[in-house]
Amino acid sequence: MRPYRVLVVDDEPDFLETLVRRLERREIPARGAASGKEALAVLETEPCDVMILDVKMPGMDGLEVLRVVKTRWPAVEVILLTGHASVESGIQGMELGAFDYVMKPCKLADLIPKVEQAYERKLLRERAGPP
């Protein structure tokens, strides 16, 4: 098992469930949340290192969730997942502190290295001291 925890947030249950299962199969401890609210609720109780966050969701959208996460749990690294090639939301997400953004559909083989890099950055920042 890898030493970090991943939280996947997506409103598409089929996608969410499968991605979580595939990550776990690769020995990455992962958990799913079907909405932004659920994700924030999960963070209240369970610590998490990397968050894979869909931008376009009903209710609270990905950028809003990102904003809350970056204020309350600034240590959490976020990778944005978007079905829309909207560059603005990507750039906006990066400005809000997201680690990277990835376009759907994305191969797991491309996604996992980004998760690893994100965790590495988290470790580096923690070592440098609290922000």
Partner: peptide
């Protein structure tokens, strides 16, 4: 853009399931 977005989500599911 609308069509691409609507298709990308099911594609993502298909890809994950196939994966």
């Amino acid at each position: 853009a609308g069509i691409a977005h609507e298709i990308n989500n099911p594609l993502a599911v298909i890809q994950e399931k196939a994966g």
